[in-house]
Amino acid sequence: MAVFCEKTLGMIRCEEEILRHCIEHPQPTPQKLTWTGTKTELIELIYALDTADCFDDGKTSLSRIASLLSDVFNIQLGSNIARNFYDMRIRNHPTPFLDRLKSLLIERMERMSR
């Protein structure tokens, strides 16, 4: 029993030391990024990333991706992103945001090549 108590006290002291260090050296809270594009643009990107199996080899659900990215980018997407996707599908130009991203990236690369 004495050995158990000594080990337990040792663990408690170790925890106290860790706690003290955390209090004396607090980590800065990372500032959230704010999505300044439209909700539809973010949803277009989310669907593209999901379709390309970009997270966990495609094992992450669309709703989880949407939830995480809405938190990371500090934006509320609402509970029915499928409706936005449906609206995107029936547009004359279904992927304007992705097309713009591609075009802007190519332009940036070309400027750097000059």
Rank of each mutant, 00 (worst) to 15 (best):
M1P: 00
A2K: 05
V3I: 02
F4Q: 07
E6M: 07
K7T: 08
T8R: 13
L9P: 00
L9N: 10
G10N: 09
I12H: 06
R13T: 04
E16N: 14
I18M: 14
I18V: 15
L19A: 13
R20V: 03
R20M: 10
H21S: 12
H21A: 09
I23H: 05
E24Y: 02
H25Q: 13
T29L: 14
Q31D: 05
K32C: 05
W35E: 07
T36I: 12
T36H: 15
T36K: 15
K39L: 01
K39P: 05
T40L: 10
T40E: 15
E41G: 04
L42G: 06
L42A: 05
I43S: 05
E44C: 03
E44L: 06
I46L: 11
I46G: 06
I46H: 04
I46K: 04
A48G: 02
A48W: 02
T51K: 15
A52L: 08
A52W: 01
C54Y: 02
F55Y: 12
D57V: 01
T60Q: 09
T60R: 10
R64I: 08
I65N: 03
S67A: 11
L69Y: 03
F73N: 04
F73D: 07
N74L: 02
N74R: 03
I75G: 14
G78Y: 01
S79D: 07
N80T: 10
N80W: 01
A82Q: 13
A82T: 10
N84Y: 13
F85G: 00
D87F: 14
D87K: 14
I90R: 15
I90D: 04
N92S: 12
N92E: 10
T95L: 15
F97G: 04
D99S: 12
L104Q: 14
L104Y: 07
E107I: 06
R111T: 05
M112Y: 04
